[in-house]
Design a protein around this nucleic acid. Sequence first.
DNA 1: GGAGATTATGTCAGCCTCTGCCATTCGGCA
DNA 2: TGCCGAATGGCAGAGGCTGACATAATCTCC
Lengths: 224, 224
Amino acid sequence: MAVQLTDPAQPHRVPGLRERKKQRTRDALVESAHRLFLEQGYARTTVDEIAAAVDVSQRTFFRYFANKDEVALAILADAEDHFVANLRERPAAENPLQALRHAIVRTWRELGGSPDGRPSSITAALELIQLIESTPTLLAAHLRRITEQEQIVAGILAEREGLDPAVDLRPRVMAAVFGGVLRSAHLSWSAEVESSGSEGMINLIERHFDQLGPALAGDWRPAV
Amino acid sequence: MAVQLTDPAQPHRVPGLRERKKQRTRDALVESAHRLFLEQGYARTTVDEIAAAVDVSQRTFFRYFANKDEVALAILADAEDHFVANLRERPAAENPLQALRHAIVRTWRELGGSPDGRPSSITAALELIQLIESTPTLLAAHLRRITEQEQIVAGILAEREGLDPAVDLRPRVMAAVFGGVLRSAHLSWSAEVESSGSEGMINLIERHFDQLGPALAGDWRPAV
DNA sequence: GGAGATTATGTCAGCCTCTGCCATTCGGCA
DNA sequence: TGCCGAATGGCAGAGGCTGACATAATCTCC
């Protein structure tokens, strides 16, 4: 989830200088951190370096991000927000699995298709996924965030279907399954030698979804 | 995975004093750490405290465990080993989903049923699961371990079915789904006010598995 | 436009996790 | 008994992270 630094109570007011400055500092920290992590690795980059790159004290860094993980994973927050929004907009006619699948594919397409001003939020996202898969510490933090997202997804699904998530287990099970499939796709993607861009990622996600039915089917014998 | 400190090359030789001492130190560290974590919380317990409780230097602690997470999660290693062994022993006639389900249920029954000498490895495991769910740092580390386990599970499934895991996505998808279902069950269990023992856990796992089919089914309308 | 209230930032001290290095001690074994 | 390798302890230090306090920047209202 992208942090909302501006006051949400006054949606149409131009944020003051203070807010704009904070946003700029935050963005600069995320960008510098991302660049440094890619250049020298996550562990070999210190918080002091990141702060220095933005000309800010270390203490200030920790006022923007609770820890080093957070600044690294911030890049995925955008995508996650998009996904949640997309899921909420899926037509009621779709069943949960369809809605999830369409929402995630659409999210990747949106991020990949439109270079929205910035060079590309998608490039950074894909770079980050590779970094995550090769950095145990980051992977752990990422997985925790993912499971939090799953709770939200479960809530949306329950709402869609008019179910009480405290009683009916299906939303949570579905969200967990979805999370698993997605993680598996990410892993496959990052393991590829030439990790293709968002097209390759979308392709892998689709293929993994396609295997969900066959995997759960009783008999695996007939080859894929 | 329970660390094997004794020399595996000579299975029938009585381990020497040195090995036994190391095993005792390790066990003591795990036990003390677990007790302290439950008493005062994970974050509020320092490594120094744990080491002091076993009368060992901090430096020695870090020779046994790579980090603080590891000593906490060590308690689940036994259960994980049991599970992997159980999965390998499932008859070939069972399909993957059945094999996974039976293996995990059997694992919990074994741990819960036979108080094997020690007061109860199961009690500690259940306590730990609750601790994990209420401690973000631990949860992150736990999730990372779980996903590593999933790779192993995927390998076993591929072997069972005679598939090449590099080509066929089904083993990995199945392993990821299984991991998701299990994690969901753990979460449900730990959220219960009066978290019943292993019986309650087994019951929840069964119920979550039962919801797997219905969750993936097209139509959710007919209530559970 | 300025006084005073808010808020962001910097500095500093300090705790905790984790690591490398070297000296010492302990168990295994001839 | 004496030697060798393994385990341990102590120490110094890097790096993540936090609380407390002072300073500087912005905002608000007159």
